[in-house]
């Protein structure tokens, strides 16, 4: 697969990864991408048409746990490492309210 590694592509990927990059970093990464993609091109030589992807490293299945509660960590420990917290919650820059009263509403992502 031949792909042109443009600055725009790197910027797009950096946006997806929420990774702030300086201009010099973008240029460096661009070069790195080219090398890495060239390096992994080796895999193209292999015909894997009929090969099943190896999704799990071992054969473990059904590692489930019973539905009985354990004591949670609790508010204080939960918030202990928070960079910005109030008495019971983590604080983040204001999220533009969506769908009425509750910002975000949970399940929905912007």
């Amino acid at each position: 697969m031949s792909i042109e590694i443009t600055e725009a592509l790197i910027s797009h990927i950096a946006t997806l990864a929420r990774l702030g990059l300086s201009e010099s970093e973008i240029a460096e990464i661009q070069g790195h991408f080219e090398k890495v993609l060239h390096y992994v091109e080796a895999l193209d030589k292999l015909d894997t048409e009929s090969v099943d992807p190896s999704i799990f490293t071992n054969d473990a299945i059904n590692m489930l746990e019973q539905d009985s509660p354990h004591a949670p960590l609790g508010q204080e420990l939960a918030l202990k490492n928070g960079p910005e917290v109030d008495e019971d919650s983590f604080l983040v820059p204001r999220i533009i309210a969506e769908a009425g009263n509750e910002a975000g509403g949970g399940k929905a992502s912007p």
């Binding site: 019971d88 604080l91 983040v92 999220i95």
Partner: peptide, 9 residues
């Protein structure tokens, strides 16, 4: 009225 939102997990 505040510039922040709270996160409850």
């Amino acid at each position: 009225g505040k510039p922040q939102s709270r996160v409850d997990l």
